[in-house]
Write a protein that binds this DNA or RNA. Structure first.
Length: 423
RNA sequence: GGAAGCGUGGCCGAGUGGCCGAUGGCGCACGCUUGGAAAGCGUGUAAACCGCAAGGUUUCAGAGGUUCGAAUCCUCUCGCUUCCGCCA
């Protein structure tokens, strides 16, 4: 949610910002609602104040005065109720309009429609050279008996998989590798709930334009998270941080669930795009002035962890048209996938500035020179590892001519083996 | 699933119809003290909204209701705790 005062003062900037994301908003209607609301509020409050004044005089009044006071007060109360009813109606409309407005792109984000503004900012490593035709992850995984999508489809349908044996161990190794790096940076490991209530999911901004992506249990009105950000962000809902407590950094491990509605026919093979996968996600709560630095930190940590695995990747600065509602700026990492001869997304880090924090009502306070300042925190998130896709990248990039797969150096201590081969 | 209790400010906790936006403590800020710190002492300290301001309104889990007037009484909802049952 944007600050209504900011919208009032910068209507053109808001309109432009939303348009840059491909969202059209009726700013005239919104400002009109805002004006009417304030007028109604002023007269309702005036009536109410007068009524309260009369009420307060009742205990001290003489019997005759009392009679008149009670009658006048009752009348004012009716007037107030009528005004208040209209006020609530208008305010409801106003809030609905406000919630529809996406976060604005940060000033340094390229304005361009769709994905056309995405730019490669950095390339790390080199394409691995094979003196044989590299196989895809599924072929490798099935041959090594660590991935089974056939049986998964029997049990759960399409876009599911079993990860077995050395594959399962590899997952835990990646988790522990990332935790060791991030805990040194002050991130607190968290295993959050993966089912969250409507209030939390809505506040995070995932029930507006991306509602189709989310699994919903109607009987309990609970939603399955598509990323643990949706569970870790609301953790501090309606809380106020002392400035000294910030930054607050978490790295959450959770299973993530996505309906993948509208992606029929896309990436149907293997485990690159599935309904259920595990992911480590970084979430930061920071003071507004630390937002940019934190975003760079999250991006650099993602890169550090990828370099540590020796994977070839590039970093994309995402253009305005490819930003989701909550994000003001986004950097993606795409890892090299030899079988597809292209880069595929494995990481994404966004700052949501104060957009999510406003909806979640997460604030900070700080005192200096005898004055107390309140404000909304800034919330950022970033992938530490989307584990399924990381395993896909490792299998493909570290595959050998004989069909075995070497384990990246950094993961060997965590795996307890240095190669996955056919038994 | 059955029963009971509870939900107050950044936090803890008092408060059972008008004197309550709310005693007190912790925390925090400022000052005194100190070589410096800690401790101690003193002062201050809820937020949101409307308004140029004076000021006003709202908020004691949430939504309704009773009343001229509600943190306080009533109803419903949600959450938490305890006991019982059930399951592990």
């Amino acid at each position: 949610m944007l600050d209504i005062k900011f919208i009032r003062e910068n209507p053109e900037a808001v309109k432009k910002g939303a348009a840059a994301k491909g969202v059209s908003i009726d700013i005239v209607k919104l400002l009109k609602l805002d004006t009417v609301k304030r007028e109604l509020q002023a007269s309702a409050e005036k009536t109410r104040a007068l009524q309260k004044e009369l009420s307060a005089a009742v205990p001290k009044a003489t019997p005759e005065e009392k009679k008149k006071l009670l009658a006048d007060s009752s009348k004012l109360k009716e007037e107030f109720l009528a005004l208040d009813e209209r006020l609530k109606l208008i305010d409801g409309e106003l809030v609905a309009e406000l919630m529809r407005i996406p976060n604005l792109p940060a000033p340094d984000v390229k304005i361009a429609p769709g994905e056309s503004g995405n730019e490669v900012a950095l390339i790390s490593g080199k394409r691995p050279q094979f003196d044989f035709k590299p196989k895809d992850a599924l072929t490798l995984g099935e041959a090594l008996d660590i991935i089974d999508v056939d049986r998964a489809s029997k049990v759960s349908g399409s876009r599911f998989g079993y990860l077995k044996g050395a594959g399962a161990i590899l997952e835990f190794a990646i988790v522990r590798y990332a935790l060791d790096i991030l805990m040194k940076e002050g991130f607190v490991p968290v295993i959050p709930p993966v089912m969250v209530g409507e209030k939390a999911m809505k506040a995070m901004g995932y029930l507006d334009r991306s509602a189709d992506e989310v699994y919903h249990f109607a009987a309990d009105n609970l939603y399955l998270v598509g990323t643990s950000e949706q569970s870790v962000g609301p953790m501090h809902m309606d809380e106020v941080f002392e400035a000294a407590e910030l930054p607050k950094r978490y790295v959450a491990f959770s299973t993530c669930f996505r309906r993948e509605a509208g992606s029929y026919g896309k990436d149907t093979r293997g485990i690159l795009r599935v309904h259920q996968f595990d992911k480590l996600e970084m979430v930061s709560f920071v003071l507004p002035e630390h937002d940019d630095a934190e975003h760079k930190l999250l991006s650099s940590l993602e890169q550090k962890m990828m370099k540590g695995l020796g994977l070839h990747f590039h970093v994309l600065n995402i253009g305005s048209g490819d930003l989701g509602d909550p994000a003001a700026r986004k950097y993606d990492i795409e890892a090299w996938i030899p079988s597809e001869d292209k880069f595929r997304e494995t990481h994404s880090t966004s700052t949501t500035t104060d957009w999510q924090a406003r909806r979640l009502n997460i604030r900070f306070k700080r005192s200096a020179a005898g004055k107390t300042e309140h404000g909304f925190v800034h919330m950022l998130n970033g992938t530490a590892f989307a584990i399924g896709r990381t395993i896909v990248a490792i299998l493909e990039n570290y595959q050998q001519a004989d069909g075995s797969v070497k384990i990246p150096e950094a993961l060997i201590p965590y795996c307890g083996f240095d190669r996955i081969e056919k038994k």
